[in-house]
C-alpha cells in the first residue's frame, strides 16, 4: 500500500510504538460546586478512577488485547493510547513523543497519520458508497481523487468486498459494514490500529471471520483490541486484564499468527 501517511509500520524496530507510564484518568461525577454551593456546604463531586496507574509498552507488530468487564477501563485506556483523551496523571507516548505535548490540532493530525480506529458500531456515512467511506481519510491527507479511488478499491477487494464498492452502507450486511470500517481504518496505512469491541455488533461466526480477515489485512501492524469476549481475544499475542481501571494480569498467549 503506497503510504501517504508520515508514519509506517516498522516491525524490525525494537522501540515500542506506544508507551503508557503511570497513566491515571479521573472523571468527576457531576459538576464542581459554585460559590453558593461552597457556602451552603455542597461537597465536591465524587471522583472515579477510570484508569488507575497503568503502565505498559506495546511493541511494533504486536496484537495486544485489553480484557475486562464493563466499566473496567478498557475503552478509556484505548482512548488514552490513541490521544483521544488526555491523562489526568502520567504520560502516553507514541514513538517517544508525549501526546500531551501536542496541541488538539496536532493530536488530530497524529491520529489521521498514525492511528486507525475500528469501532464497535461501524459509523459509516449512509450517504456515501463503501468506497467513498473508505477513501474519506485520504481526502483529508490531500491524496488525489484517482489515487484515493484506486487505493480504496484495492483495499476493499483485499477484504472481500470487491463487488460492493459502490454500495451504500444501508445495502450492506453488518459484517460487510464492519469490513468497510476496517478498510477505512487501514486506508492511511497507520502504524497502530485501535479496535474497540470490533465484533460486538456481529454474530459469533461472522465476528470470527471478520477478525481473521482483519488480522490478515492488517498484516504486521500493531493492534490494540478491547473486548470482553474471550474468542475475540484469542487472536492476540498477549492480553492485559483490567479491573476498576487497574491492570490485574498480563497474559502472554501462544502466538497464533
Amino acid at each position: 500500500m503506497a503510504g501517504a501517511a508520515t508514519a509506517s509500520v516498522d516491525s524490525d524496530s525494537s522501540s515500542p510504538i506506544v508507551t503508557a507510564r503511570d497513566v491515571t484518568k479521573v472523571y468527576k461525577r457531576g459538576s464542581e460546586p459554585g460559590l453558593i454551593g461552597r457556602i451552603v456546604g455542597r461537597s465536591e463531586p465524587p471522583a472515579v478512577h477510570a484508569v488507575d496507574s497503568v503502565s505498559l509498552e506495546i511493541a511494533p507488530g504486536e496484537i495486544v488485547g485489553l480484557a475486562g468487564s464493563s466499566g473496567s477501563g478498557k475503552s478509556t485506556l484505548l482512548h488514552l493510547l490513541s490521544g483521544l483523551e488526555q491523562p489526568t496523571a502520567g504520560t502516553v507516548s507514541f514513538r517517544e513523543t508525549d501526546l500531551a505535548a501536542l496541541s488538539a490540532r496536532e493530536r488530530t493530525r497524529h491520529r489521521l497519520e498514525n492511528i486507525g480506529i475500528v469501532f464497535q458500531r461501524f459509523h459509516l456515512l449512509d450517504s456515501l458508497s463503501a468506497r467513498a467511506n473508505v477513501a474519506l481519510p485520504l481526502v483529508e491527507l490531500g491524496v488525489p481523487k484517482r489515487e484515493r479511488r484506486k487505493r480504496a478499491t484495492e483495499l476493499l477487494e483485499r477484504i472481500g468486498l470487491g463487488d460492493r464498492i459502490t454500495h451504500r452502507p444501508g445495502e450492506l450486511s453488518g459484517g460487510e459494514q464492519q469490513r468497510v470500517a476496517i478498510a477505512r481504518a487501514l486506508i492511511t496505512d497507520p502504524a497502530l490500529v485501535i479496535a474497540d469491541e470490533p465484533t460486538g455488533e456481529l454474530d459469533t461466526a461472522t465476528g470470527q471471520k471478520i477478525l481473521e480477515e482483519f488480522k490478515q489485512v492488517a498484516e504486521n501492524r500493531t493492534i490494540v483490541l478491547a473486548s470482553h469476549d474471550q474468542e475475540t481475544l484469542e487472536i492476540c499475542d498477549r492480553v492485559i486484564r483490567l479491573r476498576d481501571g487497574a491492570i490485574t494480569t498480563r497474559q502472554t498467549q501462544e502466538v497464533n499468527r
Partner: peptide
C-alpha cells in the same frame, strides 16, 4: 442521527473543515 458517525470521523483525524463540508454537501443534496 449521524452525530456518532461524525464523532467517529473526528476521532479518526478528519478535520472540522472536511466534516462541515461533508455535512453541507449532504444538506445541498
Amino acid at each position: 442521527q449521524q452525530r456518532q458517525t461524525f464523532a467517529a470521523l473526528t476521532a479518526q483525524g478528519i478535520s472540522r473543515s472536511l466534516l462541515v463540508s461533508t455535512v453541507i454537501g449532504q444538506g445541498l443534496i
